[in-house]
Structure formats: C-alpha cells, structure tokens
Design a protein around this nucleic acid. Structure first.
Length: 343
DNA sequence: AATGATAGCAACCGCCTCTAT
DNA sequence: GATAGAGGCGGTTGCTATCAT
C-alpha cells in the first residue's frame, strides 16, 4: 500500500461519468482491437475518450468483451454459483473464473438479486434446504464433470480447489492475457445467434476484413429495444445506450480464420465526426417518442424508422468507403435531405 | 391513471495487491 | 526495504423498468 495516500486515478472533474454512449463503446472496442490495452490509464486519452481508465476497463470487461456470454443464467449455472459461493463466499472474481463468458459483476448481481433471496427463503424451511442442496450437488456433478467432486461439502478441500483452478485455466483463455485479445471463434458467434441474441437487425455497419481469398465482411448489427415489443426487462433498460444484447457481431459468409480465431478490424482512425454523429444517431434512433404508437401507426412508424436508420448507416458506410456502391447515390441524397430537415 | 414500492443491473468508489523503481 | 503507480476486487449506489395498490 502506498502509505502516503493515493493520487486519484484521474481528475474526476475532467472525465465523463455515467452510462456509456454507443460511440464511446465503439471507440473503446475499436481502439482495444487495434492497440490492445496494455495501459488502462493511458487508454482513454489515446482513444479519445473522456473517461477514467478504470471506467474503460470496467466497461470492457463487464460489457464489451467479445467473449461475453449474455442472457439469463441457466439453472445449472445458478446452482453452480450457489455451491461456489458456499465454498468461497463473496470471491466473485474467483467464482466468475469458472464461468467462461460471465463476469464477476454479473455473477454478483445475480447472487444479490436472485440467488440470495432464493436461498434465504429456503433457509426458512430447514429440511427443504438440505434436500435442495443435495439435488443441486447431483445436478452440478452431472453438468460439470471436472468440478463435480468438490461441491458436496462446505469448504473446498485443497484438491478440489485445485481441480477448479485447473478447469478455470483451461476455460478462460481470455483472462490469460487480455492484451492479446481474441475474438470468439465462430461457434461462439453461432451460439449467440442460437440464443436469439440477434433479435432484430435494424442497422448494419459493415467492416471489410482482408482475406487472402478476398474481402469478407463483418457486420456489426444493432437492434434497439425501442423497436422491439419484447417484454424482457433486461432489454428495456439503457435507453439510448447501445447494449451488448443490441450490439452483436454477425458474420456474413465464411470468415477468415487464423489459428481458429476469427480476425476482424474496425477502422479506428475514422473522422471524429463519425463518432459524434453516431452518438447523435443512436440517441435519435432510440428516442421512443416517434415510435410510441398511435395504435395502427405503430407498424408504419417503426418501419419508417428502420428505413431511415438504414439510410443513415448506408450514408456512414459510404463515408467510410464501406458501402455497396449501388446504393450510395440514393442513400446520400436521402441522408442529405434528412440532415437538412433536422437541422 | 397516478403513485409508490420493488427489482434488476450498469457503473462507481475505495481499498487491496502486485510490480517496478 | 520503501515508495509509487497500476490493475483488480468487492461493496455500494443510482437509474430505469416493472409491479402492486
């Protein structure tokens, strides 16, 4: 410990706080993708972000990392969390290390919101709990063979802990060296698609990826809760913020693989106006007001919004030189009109 | 329909640990 | 060994959506 007190990690009056905007997310993603994150403190400045380095790190780890598994925890995962918490207490990062794709923050939240209450209620009816624990134990052992032996007793033995750690090392490649950040392989992408994380593709920013056999395309797709009729509360938070459920990596066609890893690149050095415009766009698009339906207008206005946003992104694509040339002229005209109208 | 209570979760804060000098 | 800087962790807060009255 320092002893003489710590210098603040950043000047809090100079940094932005609160929810991250879509453009900040994209800046961070593209910067890390290109340069890695060897120095979190220096990163915000280098990336042109008015954020504390810690904030960037947290955002990346908890939200933007490409290997994150989103969506609800499965029953098995929840049961595993309960058992691991029994063994280790609030060692969230340690627990999280056994759930590839899950973050300590996520697990902590799940524990605090769901599991703790569930257990508390079970504790009130004594016998049920021991029954429950034994069922959890057997369930766990069937679902996680390498970890199965340690869960029947309260404290983990040295051997069983070692087993967990062994498994953890095997599972969490990302945590080995996050500077060598790797994108998930295609099976993970497919898994996300299977989980319906790609609910509705409303916009696409295509990024060409060089490939010896030609240029493939990565599509960053975003869908917005305001355009969805989903009752899922998790998708309804965040307002104009681009959420991971919204921002998914989608692949068109085969993707270049180097040593089984997909490689892609988002152009970081685009015009700063691009990011700012993107911010404005995201806010504009996610603004529910134009979409809040007057009954039969719902469908029409939503589709209008989709069309407009599609035009907008096409415009972006053309600005970035990523466009399908056949669409460019029309879209530029459309956007210019829209732009003039809004201004 | 309005209001208050509750739930869920992203983000922040402050402390701890590790490492370089 | 002392010190400072940086990353990491766990606790907590605050915002938003949903539910209940």
């Amino acid at each position: 410990m320092g002893g003489k007190g710590r210098t603040p990690c950043c000047d809090k009056s100079q940094v932005k706080r609160g929810p991250w905007s879509p453009s900040e997310d994209l800046r961070l993603i593209s910067f890390i993708q290109k340069h890695g994150h060897s120095n979190w403190r220096a990163l915000p400045k280098q990336a042109g972000l008015l954020r504390c380095g810690k904030s960037c790190r947290l955002r990346w780890i908890n939200y933007l990392r490409p290997d994150l598994k989103r969506g609800n925890f499965t029953k098995e995962e929840e049961e595993s969390i309960i058992k691991l918490h029994e063994a280790w207490g609030n060692k969230w990062s340690k627990i999280a290390s056994h759930f590839p794709g899950r973050t300590d923050n996520e697990i902590k939240n799940v524990w605090n919101t769901h599991l703790r209450k569930g257990l508390a209620s079970k504790n009130s009816c004594g016998d049920d709990q021991s029954k429950e624990l034994s069922s959890i134990s057997s369930s766990y052992s069937s679902s996680s063979s390498s970890a199965s032996s340690q869960l029947s007793s309260g404290e983990p033995s040295a051997g069983t802990t070692a087993e967990f750690e062994h498994q953890s090392n095997q599972d969490s490649n990302m945590s080995k060296n996050q500077n060598d950040y790797e994108l998930p392989n295609l099976s993970i992408i497919q898994e996300k698609l299977d989980q319906n994380l790609l609910m509705e593709v409303t916009n696409q920013v295509r990024v060409p990826v060089d490939d010896a056999k030609g240029v493939k395309t990565l599509t960053i797709s975003s869908s917005f809760s305001s355009l969805e009729s989903s009752n899922d509360s998790s998708s309804s938070q965040g307002g104009g913020i681009l959420r991971p459920d919204d921002l998914v990596f989608d692949f068109e066609g085969a993707y270049p693989l180097i040593e089984d890893k997909a490689v892609l690149e988002i152009p970081f050095e685009c015009d700063y106006d691009f990011w700012n415009m993107l911010d404005g766009f995201m806010t504009f698009q996610s603004n529910p007001e134009p979409l809040l339906p007057q009954a039969d207008q719902t469908y029409q206005s939503s589709n209008l919004e989709l069309v407009e946003s599609g035009k907008w992104l096409s415009y972006l694509e053309s600005e970035l030189g990523l466009e399908d040339s056949t669409k460019t002229n029309i879209n530029n005209q459309d956007f210019a009109m829209k732009d003039a109208t809004e201004q």
